[in-house]
Design a protein around this nucleic acid. Sequence first.
DNA 1: AAAGCCTACAACCGCATAGCT
DNA 2: CAGCTATGCGGTTGTAGGCTT
Length: 335
Amino acid sequence: MGRAPCCDKANVKRGPWSPEEDTRLKSYIEEHGTGGNWIALPQKLGLKRCGKSCRLRWLNYLRPNIKHGNFSEEEDNIICSLYVTIGSRWSIIAAQLPGRTDNDIKNYWNTKLKKKLLGKQRKLEQQAQARKVFNQKQQIKRESEDLMLPVGVTTRTPYWPEQQYSWPIPVANNASIQYSNLNNNNQTSSFSKHFPNNIVTATTMNSQHSSRDISLTQNQLHDLHPSTLMNMISTDTCHTSNVFQGFVNFSSDFPCVNQQQIDGTMRVFYGLETMDMATNGSTNTTSTESTSWGDINSLVYSPLLVSDHEACQQRIIMPQDVTFEESSCFAMQRQ
DNA sequence: AAAGCCTACAACCGCATAGCT
DNA sequence: CAGCTATGCGGTTGTAGGCTT
């Protein structure tokens, strides 16, 4: 047995609303309110509409201060960032955009923004593939060179093969890459690199929510593997390390900095894009996730179990005109 | 000009859940 | 606590209008 219908479908009008229906509904609600009962509303009004339909019409089109169309670049960015962070929770996203309805944002996403993002994603895939092929060729070349060495001569294997973990460089200004991790001591560590000035900042957040902000020089970090850095940040010895040079205000770099704990996985934020990074199996990171770019869902943080108000407090890295024409963000993938 | 296709978006549907009895 | 109902939400569908062939 199916669910009981909310109204008598045979006796309700469906389809587009007429101006007359709109006027009746609008003037009634403005005068009397909804009365807390949408189901009874159409009968009071003499409208042959389902209560649900009245509610939707009011919420999405008739209530005051509704904006339609003409989404600004800023709104695009907010929608994309929130989608990446919390997924298709349109009502939460709409709550961040005054005058916008969840339905409007959903439609806008499905018809325009998604395609825009997928186009960018395809471009990234192509660049990643090219980079992968290049790295494989380099590896083969190195191995074949090693084979040519005389017997008894051993090659020095660098701890981090040269350039293998070089930081990807976005072309545009004001980009940042951010890593975060929850270690075994319930301590969240994160670090980010900002472009184009190449300032690197790091933060640790322990269970008591105290934080430590550290800055590192570009030259010292260029080839440092993220998980190694994370290790250093996560330990109390970091302030004595010669890598760390001082303290900067990390939190103010981000609109929303509530630390989200991503156990076992480090992620990179690149404006709109995120990627999981394979790690070197150090103490702070426990798993390796492969990143599929064949699906828009791969852009979404998952799984995230947050309440609605928490969702709004999650850390959101705002995209800031990052382009990827010249860069490959997969350079950090360990082969 | 007309048919077919595509896009945008309004509206619907059904599930989950809160709140009431 | 169980059952019922209204509401809220997200996915999906329907359709009008524009575009292409």
